Simulated assay, not measured.
Amino acid sequence: MSGERTDNEVLTLAPPGSGAELLEVRDLRVRFSRGGRRVHAVNGLSYRLNAGEILAIIGESGSGKSVSARTLMGLLPPSAQVTGSARFAGTELLGLPEREMRGRRGAEIAMVFQDPARSLNPTMRIGAQITEAIRAHSALSRKQAAERAVELLKLVHLPAAERRFYEYPHQLSGGMRQRVVIAIALAGEPRLLIADEATTALDVTTQAQIMELLLELKQRLGMAIILISHDLGLAASYAQNVVVMYAGRAVEYTSAEELFAHVRMPYTQALLGAIPLLEREPHALLPVIPGQPPDPAALPPGCPFRPRCAAATDACAEPPPFVEHEPGHWWACWHPAEDLSPQVKDGVQG
C-alpha cells in the first residue's frame, strides 16, 4: 500500500535474492556556513544498500550526491553540521571519533575520486603508494606488501604490472592512473567502494573499461558499490537501484529496471531526455533542462525543481512529500511525468 514517508522512515528497496543489509542512511542532513549564510547541501536523504549490490546516486553538480558520499567517509570539514544516521554493518558512522573512522576508512569503506592525477602523489612511485596503503591496513612486511601490490595491479588489469610498479603517475595514461587508484582503494579489502564520478575525466572507451572493471571486481570480491554520477545511462547499464537527487533531496528512488520503464519525476525525465541518442538527426539540438539548479544557500519554497519544471502549477508552492506511489517506487512530485517514449528508453538501455 502506498503512503507518505516521514523524515524518520527509511526507504526499503531490496530486490529478491539480494544480500544482507550493509548500509542504512536515514534522514541525512548536511549544512555548511558560507559568507554568513547556511548552505543546505543534503536535505533528509534516506536509502539502504545491501551487500554485493550497486546503487547509483544521480544528479547534476551541486545536488548533494558527492557531499553525502564524503559524509560516509568522514571527509567533511569540521565546520559541517551533520544530522541523521548512517549505519554501516550495524555501526553508526556519524559522530564516530576520527581515530575509529580512520580505522574503517579504506579498510571497510573506500572511495575512488574523479581525477586520478589528484589522488596520487606525483613524487612517489606507483608501487610505493599501493604498498603504503596495504601496510596501513595489515601487518604484512614491506616485501609481502610489495608482492600484494603487484597482485592488485594485476587484479585491476594494469598492463605490465611488475614494470608499472616502479613508475611514477605521470608515466601512465589517465585510464591507467584510475586503475592504480582503484588498486589503492582495494588495498584494505573494503566491503563498500564509493566511485565518485570515477569515469567522468576519461574518454568514452576508457570509461567503459573502468566500469567493466568495477563490475568484475564487485563480482569477484563481493563488494557493494555506490556510483556517484550525473549519467543516468551509467545507472541503466550497471546499477540495481537508483537514487535521483536534486537540491540535496532524493526526488525519485526505485530499481533501475523500474525507473527506466516508468520514470515519474519530471526532473528524472528531463535528465533522460537530455541523453544523446544515435537516432536523433545529425544537426538536431540536444534537449537541455532550462535554468540552473537552485543555490543551496537560498532554496526556493515548495518543490525545488518548480522554477525549471514545465509541469509546475500553484500546487508546487508546497513541497511534495516523498511517497511510495507504487510498490518499490518513490517520487516527490505533485504532477508525475508520463513514461518516456520507447525511443528514449531504447537509447538509454541500449
Rank of each mutant, 00 (worst) to 15 (best):
R280S: 04
E257Y: 11
I57M: 01
E151R: 14
V42A: 08
E98P: 15
L285M: 07
P320W: 09
L202V: 12
I126T: 05
L152P: 07
E279K: 07
W331R: 07
P97K: 04
A224V: 07
M73H: 14
S141V: 09
Q219M: 15
T206V: 11
A239H: 00
I57P: 01
Q219C: 13
G302L: 01
A133Q: 13
V251W: 00
A41G: 03
P336R: 04
C316Q: 00
A317E: 10
T123A: 14
K218I: 10
D314R: 01
S341E: 02
R70Y: 14
L340P: 00
G302D: 01
R99P: 14
L49H: 07
A274R: 06
A20T: 12
Q269S: 13
D295Q: 07
G90Q: 10
A312Y: 00
S341G: 03
A250E: 06
A110S: 04
R34M: 11
A51G: 10
G36E: 04
G103W: 03
K143L: 15
G84E: 06
G188V: 02
G233W: 05
H137G: 05
L22E: 05
T313W: 01
L277I: 11
S61E: 05
T254F: 03
L214C: 04
L277H: 14
L94S: 05
Y166W: 13
A298V: 02
L75A: 13
H157I: 09
M124S: 09
A284R: 07
H325Y: 01
A235V: 05
T71V: 10
G174N: 13
R179S: 00
M223W: 02
E132W: 14
N50P: 13
A235N: 08
P336H: 11
H170R: 12
I275P: 06
L155Y: 12
G175A: 10
Y47H: 11
R104F: 04
A117W: 14
A41P: 05
A20M: 12
L152S: 13
G52S: 08
L72M: 13
E216H: 06
H329A: 04
L232T: 00
F322G: 12
M211K: 11
V204W: 15
E257Q: 12
V82F: 13
V10W: 04
E212V: 05
T6F: 15
K218M: 08
S255V: 05
I130P: 11
C303H: 01
A51S: 08
A89F: 07
P301M: 01
V82N: 06
A312Q: 00
F165S: 02
A89K: 10
G3D: 15
M124P: 15
D346G: 15
L213E: 11
H262E: 09
L28D: 10
A195I: 03
G222D: 07
